[in-house]
């Protein structure tokens, strides 16, 4: 337990001081913003996935070619930086209309910490991904957090537009598969995380930090 990771401790301190993350809300397509359903400082709720629930609080109404669309919050939090000047104006696709200040929960903080602590394999391009068959079998048998991989091992197969390209582990060292960030054959955007790997000697320390967070933050 002697190995120290000062950057992780620093990150943890940052989360203690400011346990928020800001999510910008973009327009999905062009159109006119007809009405804002929220004011600055309002509390909005994201979808919880419950039966018969309306998914997310309405944020604003976007009209294009006589069709209206209600844009709903995808995450719960407080509305800020609302751009009132967009009201009844034409907006382009993917312009930022408002921001939601979201308080991080215990699981979210753990995943944020893991994202910076683990060696992350990112998607090299927008495509569909599957685990390599031998690795998938191993994972099924031994479970996540136990399967070991080393340099040169085939991890994933990228499939897109009739191509199938294997992806190998290029980083030096012995790793343990700690997290999977994708479901097989789902379209993944470029640079999104796919697999989180942990150096074998780093593993006990990481588990210690996770335990610490679980004790410090209330679980939702």
């Amino acid at each position: 337990m002697e190995i120290e990771y000062p950057e992780l401790n620093l990150l943890l301190q940052k989360f203690r001081a400011n346990p928020y993350k800001i999510y910008p809300v973009f327009t999905p397509h062009t159109g006119y913003i007809k009405e804002f359903k929220v004011k600055e400082g309002d509390l909005v709720k994201g979808p919880t996935g419950k039966w018969l629930e309306k998914p997310g609080s309405p944020l604003f109404i976007l009209e294009r070619e006589k069709n209206t669309k209600i844009i709903r919050a995808q995450i719960s939090g407080i509305v800020q930086n609302l751009k009132m000047e967009f009201l009844n104006k034409f907006v382009e696709a993917e312009s930022c209309v408002l921001e939601i200040k979201h308080q991080l929960s215990q699981e979210e903080i753990i995943s944020e910490i893991l994202l910076s602590a683990l060696y992350i394999i990112k998607a090299p391009e927008t495509a569909r991904y599957v685990l390599s068959p031998s690795l998938a079998l191993k994972l099924e048998k031994e479970g996540i957090g136990k399967v070991k991989v080393k340099t040169g091992d085939e991890l994933l197969i990228m499939t897109f537009m009739k191509r199938e390209t294997p992806i190998y582990l290029s980083q030096e060292g012995d790793f343990v598969i700690y997290r999977l960030y994708f479901t097989p054959f789902q379209l993944i955007q470029k640079d999104q995380p796919l697999i989180g790997l942990c150096l074998e000697e780093k593993l006990p320390y990481l588990e210690k930090i996770v335990k610490k967070i679980k004790k410090e933050w209330p679980s939702s």
């Binding site: 397509h29 062009t30 696709a93």
Partner: peptide, 18 residues
Amino acid sequence: YRISDYKDMNDLLAVADE
């Protein structure tokens, strides 16, 4: 103008009007 997709007719016509 930025649009969501080159195949999105509604986006193209909305931009044309604007």
